[in-house]
Nucleic acid binder design. Structure first.
Lengths: 175, 175
DNA sequence: GACAATGTAAAATGATCGTTTTACATTGAA
DNA sequence: TTCAATGTAAAACGATCATTTTACATTGTC
């Protein structure tokens, strides 16, 4: 595995498991199996490393959301939380831990959320033949965020419940 | 104002604004206007202070949710985010920042979520004359969490959208 | 075979972390 | 008036923070 990939994937799991601020650079270097000199050559800084981790996660996440129905969208989220665990949205967590004060991080968060929002709008338009309005899409988005958050303490079943709800809303808008 | 109250309210706004781990004890003592000796006499430790802050917030939040309809429930949440700001659920943020590894914090989070869940179940049962099942209540809970999370980057309007959706779901179950 | 790049290991940087301690002032009740 | 409680101010604690530096080994390439 490429050294940069190894660093980013090690950092991602540590950040996800223990939080961003609580994870120190020495733990990062140890987990990634490299010297701090090499880490800084590739990452630049801790904030930059966080941004890179989020950027990679964004790609991986959106790749999973490459579907064309609301039902499939929530099934994809269900798969995600079963594989990657349900510790909440890592983008919002990073944003919250840094108080929204780190531009690099705030920007990746905003870009990620814009990506998800676009995907949902696209799917809703597709499934309702354009009859679905922006309000419906925002309701789906809220269910999506809600499922992610609720799964933290109620488990992956919350995503299934959200899926049933979302599918029903879209059906009602299409009929 | 009581010294303990002053400490907890100063701590709450700093934690909310800058994050838990990122907020140091010196900044806390400065904002609360007291020496670190006094702070530790009242709080015991930082983790304990976080737990106390969350515990007080839990009471204040649930007091606001003393309503008897889903519409009023989401209107209460709307008021909350307009007054207190929308930086996401502070309980889930604390839980995430500590990796769920601090029992004091994990317990307050769980207790808070149980309280919200009970309240929602109560309201749903009331509004549907017992016709609403557990699934409906969980859908309302997911919309509630989703509104809180989405409001971080889309503003308080997300709560209004969630309210419309929740009211519709309850109406459909009651008819 | 020299050179630039890329890596490791480990020490040093100065700042900040959470927490405790030392020394002293104020207060209210016995 | 003395005692215990409660507060402040400030220094000290050892640990850890993110980051840089020093010294050295291993490469692939011209």
């Amino acid at each position: 595995m490429d050294i940069k990939t190894k660093l980013i994937s090690a950092a991602e799991s540590l950040f996800d498991r223990h939080g961003f601020t609580a994870t120190g650079m020495d733990r990062l270097t140890q987990a990634a199996g490299m010297s701090s000199r090499t880490l800084y050559k590739h990452a630049g800084s801790k904030h930059s490393l966080i941004a890179k981790v989020l950027s990679e996660r964004d790609k991986r996440f959106l790749r999973r959301l490459d579907v064309s129905s609301v039902d499939a969208l929530f099934k994809a989220l269900e798969d995600w939380v079963r594989v990657e665990g349900c510790r909440g949205c890592l983008f919002l967590r990073a944003y919250g831990e840094t108080g929204g004060d780190v531009p690099e991080i705030a920007e990746v968060m905003a870009a990620h959320k814009a990506g998800v929002w676009n995907k949902i709008q696209e799917i809703v338009a597709l499934e309702t033949s354009g009859r679905g309005d922006e309000q419906l899409a925002e309701q789906i988005l809220i269910l999506f965020e809600g499922a992610t958050a609720t799964a933290i303490y109620r488990g992956a079943d919350a995503v299934t419940t959200a899926r049933h709800c979302a599918v029903r809303l879209v059906k009602q808008a299409s009929s």
